[in-house]
Design a protein around this nucleic acid. Structure first.
Lengths: 199, 199
DNA sequence: TTGTATGGACGCAACGGTGCGTCTACTCTA
DNA sequence: TAGAGTAGACGCACCGTTGCGTCCATACAA
């Protein structure tokens, strides 16, 4: 293990916010979470790892949860975009597969799981997590699904939100319980829940 | 490994464990969790509420998580039994509906959600939670499903575990994200995933 | 049957340790 | 000079542990 090397000396900051310090904090939080889990994630450890004073963290973030939210939002916008442009059944299946891989393979997936968890423990986290992450993302997913319905690509058995919960839920649940996600899970879910009632 | 314990010349001396204290701790933990959330749940608060010394808690439980596990196991065995005796599609649908109500309405449902969450944060919790709760319950659920398949009642599109994850996942996910669980969710999931591939 | 010794369960109180969030004091640059 | 940064001490709460004294159910000897 690389034993928390303090970052190389940055040039002293001026009177604007130090972008290098901001990124160092974000990355430190992300790394520490992946390496040692949320339980071992403390503001003091983040400061140490980032090579930044604790006060600098408290100046810009009210809690470590908001730090994680910042990293999650940036990473998932970048690496797990919602395909709202091509409203096809195939793109929805693709998104579900990407989501499963994001959760299991991407460091940001661990952040998402940790925030889902922390939201159960703390109401402030729950509120912020919904407002800043879950809500906006759900809006995009709803849009994706609604367009596919309009295009006649799919015809789900449930309402918009319930359908998304039914598709995403099992994937998240597998990740939460640490069981591996079967290859055909996403596709079978889509088949079972997006097809028109053929009978 | 314990070197030569002095011969228990009097095997049955001393007081017995105080059952009232045990129950007081279990109920105090349950109540505090429901009232103030896991974040505010401390061993000292449990001791205060139960009218019991902190030492008495540490004497019998290694952590507050184990206290919650004890309450969860007792409550869910009692109030959410897995219907393994009548292997019908209907009993499975009924179980899913009961499970949804358990999660949203029963205090023990909150305990379950809190433990799922805490298992993300702490590896010890994860291990104990799987060994003592998730594993045994999954065995029963697998049994329930396998019997229904043998009886020709259902013919799922996925493997045993994946099917259970696909049925239970959305319900848990709704509860975790605080969204209400649609009335027809359980039934539609069962229809979409347990029916034989009719086409 | 009675008296006593045993030893476990319990309550009370204090300990050192850790992370929290705040605070002060100082530095550096635009 | 004002804003952003570093360094580190502070009081607080909870952690998990320990020592000590009390209570009481049992086992056994008188």
């Amino acid at each position: 293990m690389p034993a928390a090397s303090p970052q190389p000396r940055r040039p002293r900051a001026g009177s604007r916010r130090d972008e290098a310090a901001r990124l160092a904090v974000l990355h430190a939080a992300d790394d520490l979470l992946v390496e040692h889990g949320f339980g071992a994630l403390t503001v003091e450890a983040i400061a140490r790892r980032a090579g930044v004073a604790k006060q600098t963290i408290y100046r810009w973030w009210p809690s470590k949860v908001e730090i994680l939210l910042d990293t999650l939002i940036e990473d998932s916008d970048k690496r797990l975009p919602v395909p709202t442009e091509r409203p096809t059944a195939e793109s929805i299946r693709g998104y579900l597969g990407d989501f499963a891989r994001f959760l299991t393979d991407d460091p940001a997936g661990k952040v998402l799981l940790a925030l889902i968890a922390e939201a159960q423990h703390d109401p402030h986290t729950a509120k912020s997590f919904h407002t800043r992450y879950l809500g906006p993302r759900r809006d995009q997913e709803r849009d994706m699904l609604a367009r596919a319905i309009d295009a006649g690509e799919v015809s789900p058995r449930l309402g918009l939100d319930a359908t998304i919960d039914a598709l995403v839920g099992p994937i998240v649940y597998c990740a939460l319980t640490g069981s591996s996600i079967p290859r055909d899970l996403a596709d079978t879910l889509a088949e079972g829940l997006l097809r028109p009632r053929s009978n």
